[in-house]
Design a protein around this nucleic acid. Structure first.
Lengths: 225, 225
DNA sequence: TAAAACTAAACAAACGTTTAATTAATTTAT
DNA sequence: ATAAATTAATTAAACGTTTGTTTAGTTTTA
């Protein structure tokens, strides 16, 4: 009576994606969906197993525990979540303000395309416990912030940007606005009489709305008029 | 074997506060704290009872169920949560932009002073179910929005404000920025080397920060330069 | 034929809620 | 005013479910 349990670690530097089987992926997808909908405690392992069309025991078998399954969801979904600032920074053909705009679009896109996972992240940040998942989020945010800081400093050197920019506060507005839109999108939809739209169309709409809105806000925050 | 159970209803027009006993208030306070910390499913009735220093059975006895206790928390905390726009609107001695600024301060204050409850509200909005609590939030948001819409329209009539203002998007940025600050205040604190500050001082700091920041953003969004 | 994948059943612990009994407070009757 | 009667408040224990996890066995794969 032996059982094979997949081992993985939370190494953030040069993390390599883990190759999961079809069933394992089905479990991770189901977990992501239900954790996003009902929260970690609200979603039972039996719920998840049923959603993934898999025996309950498979969750412990493959992931060890419910907690570890959550970590696997994070591991899987954060592999390529980093903003594409690295390449952006070296590009001399585009202006700093254009780079910032690209970054905004990149962030909004990532958010829209990973709504479920971002809901989970928002919930986990609220809990404020010292879990591996919390550490991962913290690290992720810190890295994103550093990248943006470099980008802003570049703009400041050329004189295109203001001197005193509160980058954390600025990011708070970006992340907050997009999160709030995600959280209250049903409210936004009914209020603007957009129930007739199909989901894809509506997603495109708020994507464009957020992008334009944030670009305007950022322009005001970082440039000298 | 009879038991007295307090009845209350979710009438939003002219809601009258319910007079709770000391123990009932203790339960509501404990519930608010633990629901905010761990979420509805994460906080058990035994946790809550212990925090309130009360027998577990008292929760069912006074409130009927855990679900109803949550409703009682909402009932209790939303009684005087409406923004003070009504009186503000009639005041002719202050300009529309001043009114908007007062409103921002009012909102930030309410948020800062009711952080636990706002965490609960954020969580409940994410769930997106058709519960009494969700209906209450929806109604609350709608009313706040209508008040602000009136205020904005007043400014537009005098020519002080722009014509095309997306009020919902504007509110999304206000609520989102403040919520995000609440969610990630620990992150903000460590990043700005403010761990040495005591909590009260830090609260004052982010209150001022948010206030100034939002006023700048709003000015840009609603005025003609 | 050995290892891995998979299953139904069982596990103990925790869950929200109810019960049955007791104590405390309030009302009614004398 | 005091005793009796009634109602409310409070408790420990038990209720039946559901929880996450493990076991022991079976099927599948290599």
């Amino acid at each position: 009576m032996f059982s094979f349990k997949r081992l993985f670690s939370f190494v953030s530097e040069m993390r390599t994606p883990i190759e999961y089987s079809e069933k394992q992926i089905a479990i991770i997808n189901a977990a992501e969906k239900l954790f996003a909908e009902k929260g970690f405690d609200g979603a039972s392992v039996r719920d998840i197993a049923q959603e993934a069309d898999v025996n309950v025991a498979m969750i412990s078998y493959y992931f060890g525990s419910k907690e570890k399954l959550m970590e696997a969801v994070f591991e899987e979904r954060t592999v390529n979540i980093k903003l594409k600032v690295e390449n952006l920074l070296q590009d001399k053909s585009i202006t700093p303000i254009q780079k910032v705009n690209i970054l905004i679009d990149d962030y909004v896109d990532k958010f829209i395309h990973q709504q479920q996972f971002h809901k989970i992240m928002m919930r986990e940040q609220m809990i404020n416990k010292h879990t591996p998942v919390a550490a991962l989020i913290h690290e992720l945010k810190k890295k994103n912030l550093e990248s943006i800081r470099t980008l802003i400093q570049e703009g400041q050197k050329t004189g295109a940007f203001k001197k005193n920019i509160d980058i954390v506060l600025m990011m708070t507005t970006m992340v907050g606005t997009v999160s709030q839109m995600l959280t209250s999108q049903h409210f936004y939809r009914t209020l603007n009489n957009m129930e007739h739209m199909d989901d894809m169309e509506f997603q495109r709409h708020i994507r464009k709305k957020l992008s334009t809105h944030l670009k305007n806000l950022f322009k005001q925050m970082i440039t000298n008029e």
